[in-house]
Amino acid sequence: MKPLFTRGPSPEFRLLVLGLLAVVLIAADHYTNWFQSTRERLSGFVAPLYWLTDAPERVGEWAGEQFRSREELQEENSRLKRQVLLLEQRSQLLAAVKAENTQLKELMNAAEMVDDRVLVAQVIGISPDPLEHVLLIDKGRDDGLDVGTPVMDASGLLGQVIEAGDAFSRVLLITDASHAIPVQLLRNSMRSVAEGTGHLYHLKLRHLASTSDIREGDLLLSSGLGGRFPAGYPVGEVVSVTRDPGRPFAEAEVLPRGRMNRSRFVLAVVGDRGQGLAGE
């Protein structure tokens, strides 16, 4: 027989207990990292959700690959061949420069630059929360990724891994409002910190001395300070510098080099990290 009234604790009591429990969880999750490993283990449940939502995209890509015409493929092939030729020529040049550089560094007794091992990962989702810039990628601890692994694309740094499951990671982008990355100018090695603003095309350099030598078009590289990001990868380009005499500091706006919301494939740098400041 159907019970006429609900049994057990009243809804008020349940709300009180579960509400308090939720508040405790929120506080614990925010101020400690107790749940990091739980979350990572439960990614086995989360990853399929993102795989499923990504499926239409992948079917579309697959269909696009399958039904490409012969001419298109040939054209692409020859274009890629030309590109490979160009890149090879450039890398030959680079090899010579690199050898010379190592030699010079040996002369100066400086630490040797280590080649980073990179891994190609596919973006399978973005965070549904409009307040955070987080990508989900299809590589995890099984592939050597860990919390803190830097992630980049062909044109610049994108961000770092903040949660690594077995075959699934969350990547916090450098444009997220809670992110900051140590950088230096390519032109004069001036150091600063580029903060995310929550906008996909904006980074900010705050608290620059108003006399500092920085101007539009300057390229910013990661400085490697802090040991999180490897040194020498492009971060962004200065688009404007504000020097207000009424304020103690100058500010600069930076356009990130990495294509934050357009990269389908990204590179995870799983090699050695924290080589210190390059070129000093």
């Binding site: 809804p11 969880l25 999750d29 549904p128 987080v134 949660e163 969350r170």
Partner: peptide, 22 residues
């Protein structure tokens, strides 16, 4: 868990919502 929000965020919100629906 799915959205990556702080654990308990939606739990709290939905529990309150459920109470008023009840």
């Amino acid at each position: 868990l799915a959205t990556g929000a702080s654990l308990g965020t939606h739990a709290l919100a939905l529990a309150v919502l459920a109470y008023f629906s009840l």
